[in-house]
Design a protein around this nucleic acid. Structure first.
Length: 970
DNA sequence: GTAGGGTTAG
């Protein structure tokens, strides 16, 4: 009872104020109990304080129950309840309470309106906000500076900048706070220049800026990278005496860092001599943002020397710096320090650790950090997904994405970006579409990152129309969007479109960056557009980007792909620093043109310059060795590869098998292939072509069978080679089987209309195989196969289906008909080919000459031979001369045939002499017969037919002596 | 006042 006298109501009020400040619920409840014990419950002031104390501690329900028991609810009770909801960001609730209050007799005060205006602003609720404004005017409170600023703030926060400016101009007095609301408002809504204009205006009206104004101004300068204006504000800071204000100085550090003026940023920090970690962090962040990882880490050391311990932000930046410098060791040291300092449970630290490990390829550590995180936020999940994507584990990434959704976390824009990246790498269009639908449903489609990666995913999966649609409907495109489009078209062989896009983007005022140049150079290379390539090269020099390593390599690559080795070599020699990629680019150029000696010379040069050969280099040098048939050299290479442990690499494996197969070491090739744990289409194809090229047709077909049994899908090269073998063997049945395979796989389309390119989805382009020309290669191989097997009906049927017949198609068909002796078809087709603009080649002329000779069309044949040289400028080979001699001698023009023989530009071969031998028999020319026979016998010993023909000549000429001696010698 | 995950490229 004694205590009852000593504790006053005022004491309880101050006690509750303390509880409220410390959000100490337990003490609030204890105090509540005491108030009840003392019988003070009916005291209005205590009731209101209790309501506030409960509300700020999160016990809104208790606060409301208590509010309902209050005996006299006054303006203060209502306002404090509304205020508390606003503080807890429960704006809707606050507004609802205000509406209830309006129905009572209690009149709102200035404080009530300030709280309600804040709620309206955050709700972006313009109509209720305007009603509140009107009510204020009606009550004559609009002259109050406090209310005026609250309303100004309401319009700004809700984004109604025009209304805010009108209200601002109507304010009775514009104090510095009013100006600051306007200035920070413009800044936050991106109207950066406008906020700087306001700062100038306020000074003209003799309102002196305070630290809030200066911070806003400096921030504006940062985002505009406006160094001069920034320096101007810096001098204001000094004049007005804010140069020891931690916040102002930190913003200054940030400004100088963003403007890449590290010395000035440092000067600010050192001059400040503060013991706070924050300005140091601003400095470190600046270095990280400018990709100066080493300097950032140095700064962390220096800061500790000044006796300032790092905080979480410092560690986060430090980890980023380690990613930049690729210094995993230092990263792990930082990890230890983070654990020691007890920051390992802080989400941002954990997420940055994951980023470090993921970007260092340490996926296990990434997962470990993730598993240890107590609260896995959307950011943590995204870090994990991103880690899997970087690691190439795209399926795993998508699994995680699903798991994250199952756990009830709604993906945000960044999470979608990672998920889509996985889809793009997996080339799974269906999953990509699912994510796209989710993105639309959740309203993330306007995010630039999302748009760009969506575009990339559609292009990577071959859906050009959808990709173009995404691009067109983006709210705005940036340079990345254009780069993605350019790269996407090039990837599918539409390089000319890429080049048009490069021009178009510049017409639309978009400046190319490093990546644009890299992508465009690639397009120039694939399109062999060297003049455009030179233009791009000039632009690169103009922008001073030619010293960039990747750009330099791309220029070399462009020139080599265009076959301009001189220019490529010139650029290569001038590269400021050559990497293994530079060497590979130039080597690839020489390799492409079959200049094997140069390839090996360059490889030697790079060895001299202490570069270690990588898989790409080995592939080129192996190819060069084997085309030069440097077998010993090849084997040395193989040993070196084994020594380096590269023999398992898929590219190397196929190159080595190809090398052995090419050199005719087919046993070795076969053994190597059989010993592989898994074989791919490239290795099998290398073996099959090896067998085919060395005339081992049966082994080639057998390998094709084994490849199918191995479960490997052949590619067009495999099919073309196998069809050739079938033709050589006249293996019609096998050939037809291959035909039905390629049809089933859709490699040829019997109803081939020309596709609108954005409508169709192309098969995944195989690295080694150019997409363009796929179909005609298969068609030509099939036609040739049917021709060789004598099935001219099938050959001609396919010929009619081919979308565009090229010179090879015509040659194959003509040769086929010629082999059948079908003069009529050959002459007709020859005529048709010429009319469609085909310039006849040597193969077509051989076909013509051969049918003319068999059909006795001497005049036509002779005319053709003359036209071949005079009109079509095709140089005849020995085969053509042989045919001509055959043609003449069959027609009895033996002398003319001999004249051809005597004027031959080459040495005659077995066919020449056999032809003349046959002719001699037909026309009974013993001398020419004997001469021919002697040559045939010399060139092909044991040619029984020649003996028989010669003996017949002797017998028919009535020369028994010669006849019997020839028989004896035989 | 400083701070966590996300887009294109050899």
């Amino acid at each position: 009872m004694e205590r009852k006298c000593t504790i006053s109501v005022e004491h309880f009020v101050s006690l509750l104020l303390k509880c409220r400040k410390q959000r100490d619920l337990a003490r609030s409840m204890e105090t509540h109990l005491q108030i009840a014990l003392y019988g003070y419950e009916a005291q209005a002031v205590l009731g209101n304080s209790l309501v506030q104390a409960y509300a700020v501690s999160g016990c809104m329900h208790d606060a409301h129950s208590l509010f309902n028991t209050l005996v006299d609810v006054d303006e203060y009770s209502w306002t404090s309840l509304i205020q508390v909801h606003v503080d807890c960001r429960e704006y809707k609730h606050a507004l609802a309470l205000f509406h209830i209050m309006e129905k009572t007799v209690v009149q709102p005060s200035t404080y009530t309106f300030v709280a309600v205006a804040k709620a309206c602003g955050h709700l972006k609720a313009l109509d209720p906000g305007f009603c509140v404004h009107m009510k204020i005017v009606k009550m004559g409170l609009d002259g109050d500076s406090y209310i005026g600023n609250a309303l100004l703030s309401m319009y700004i926060v809700s984004g109604s900048l025009v209304e805010a400016q009108i209200l601002f101009d109507l304010l009775r007095t514009q104090i510095v706070v009013s100006w600051n609301i306007l200035i920070t408002g413009y800044l936050e809504h991106g109207l950066v220049e406008k906020s700087l204009e306001c700062i100038d205006h306020m000074q003209l009206r003799n309102v002196s800026p305070n630290e809030i104004t200066l911070i806003a101004g400096l921030k504006a300068c940062s985002s505009l990278r406006a160094v001069l204006k920034g320096r101007d504000l810096h001098s204001k800071v000094i004049i007005l005496g804010f140069d020891m204000d931690l916040s102002v100085e930190t913003t200054l550090v940030n400004l100088y860092s963003k403007c890449v003026l590290p010395t000035e940023a440092q000067a600010v920090v050192f001059k400040l001599q503060a013991s706070s970690v924050v300005p140091w962090n601003a400095l470190i962040t600046g270095y990280v943002e400018n990709n100066s990882g080493k300097e950032a880490l140095g700064c962390i050391d220096k800061m500790q020397l000044h006796g300032i311990p790092p905080n979480v932000v410092t560690f986060v930046c430090g980890l980023k710096a380690c990613v930049i410098t690729q210094d995993l060791d230092r990263g792990q040291e930082l990890h230890c320090e983070i654990v020691k300092a007890g920051f390992d449970n802080v989400p941002s630290a954990g997420n940055s650790l994951m980023a470090l490990y993921a970007k260092s390829g340490a996926i296990l550590e990434t997962c470990e950090v993730f598993n240890k995180l107590p609260n896995k936020s959307i950011v943590s999940w995204t870090s994990l997904i991103s880690g899997f994507v970087d690691y190439g584990a795209n399926e795993k990434a998508l699994d995680c994405f699903e798991k994250m959704c199952v756990e009830g976390l709604a993906p945000d824009a960044a999470a979608f970006v990672c998920g889509l990246k996985a889809c793009g790498s997996l080339e799974t269009a269906s999953m990509g579409r699912e994510l796209h639908a989710m993105i639309l449903a959740m309203g993330h489609e306007r995010n630039l990152y999302v748009g760009n990666v969506l575009l990339d995913t559609y292009l990577k999966t071959g859906f050009f129309a959808d990709g173009q649609g995404v691009f067109n409907f983006m709210p705005f495109q940036n340079v990345v969007s254009w780069n993605t489009l350019i790269a996407g078209y090039t990837e599918y062989g539409f390089s000319s479109d890429s080049l048009l896009l490069y021009n178009q983007m510049q017409l639309e005022g978009m400046f190319p960056d490093v990546t644009t140049f890299i992508c465009t150079l690639k397009a120039c290379g694939s399109a062999k557009e060297v003049s455009m390539g030179r233009q791009v090269h000039a632009s690169i020099v103009f922008t001073g980007l030619e010293s960039d390593g990747i750009v330099g390599n791309s220029i070399v690559d462009m020139y080599t792909k265009c076959g301009q080795l001189k220019e490529a070599h010139y650029v290569f020699d001038l590269l400021p620093s050559k990497s293994i990629v530079s060497w590979n680019s130039i080597i690839a150029g020489f390799s492409e043109l079959g200049l094997s000696e140069d390839v090996l010379r360059l490889v030697d040069e790079m060895r001299i310059e202490h570069f270690s050969l990588d898989t790409t280099t080995y592939v080129y040098s192996l190819k060069a060795c084997c085309s030069l048939k440097f077998i010993a050299h090849c084997q040395e290479h193989h040993e070196e590869i084994i020594l380096k442990g590269l023999e398992g690499h898929p590219f190397i494996v196929s190159a080595v098998v190809d090398m052995y197969a090419n050199c005719g070491l087919l046993r070795e090739a076969q053994d190597l292939l059989d010993g592989l744990p898994a074989r791919n289409v490239i290795v099998w194809t290398a073996l099959i072509t090896g067998y085919a090229e060395h005339g081992l047709s049966f082994e080639a077909l057998e390998s094709f069978e084994r490849m199918i049994l191995d479960g490997i899908l052949p590619n067009i090269i495999t099919y073309a080679c196998t069809l050739k073998v079938c033709g050589n063997l006249s293996a019609l049945y096998k050939g037809e089987e291959v035909h039905s395979r390629v049809t089933k796989e859709g490699l040829i389309d019997f109803h081939a209309e020309v596709y609108g390119k954005s409508e169709c989805r192309f098969p995944n382009p195989d690295g080694a195989v150019e997409f363009e020309g796929t179909e005609s290669l298969i068609f030509n191989s099939l036609i040739e196969m049917y021709c060789k097997c004598g099935c001219m009906v099938d050959a001609h049927y396919l010929f009619n289906l081919i979308p565009v017949a090229d010179i090879l198609t015509w040659s194959a068909l003509l040769t086929g008909y010629a082999r059948q002796g079908d003069t009529e078809h050959v002459l007709h087709l020859f005529d048709k080919a010429r009319k469609t603009g085909i310039k006849p080649n040597e193969v077509m002329f051989l076909a013509i000459l051969s049918v003319c000779s068999h059909g006795g069309l001497v005049g036509v044949g002779q005319h053709c031979f003359e036209a071949m040289i005079g009109e079509y400028l095709v140089l005849p080979a020995l085969e053509h001369y042989n045919c001509l001699m055959d043609l003449l001698s069959r027609a009895g023009k033996l002398e003319e045939a001999v004249a051809v023989l005597e004027n031959l530009p080459f040495g005659p071969d077995l066919v020449t002499w056999s032809t003349l031998l046959g002719a001699s028999r037909n026309w009974g020319d013993v001398d020419l017969g004997r001469q021919s026979f002697e040559w045939v016998a010399r060139l092909d010993e044991g040619n029984a037919a020649a003996y028989i023909v010669m003996s017949n000549i002797y017998a028919e000429a009535g020369m028994p002596a010669s006849y019997s001696s020839l028989i004896a010698s035989y």
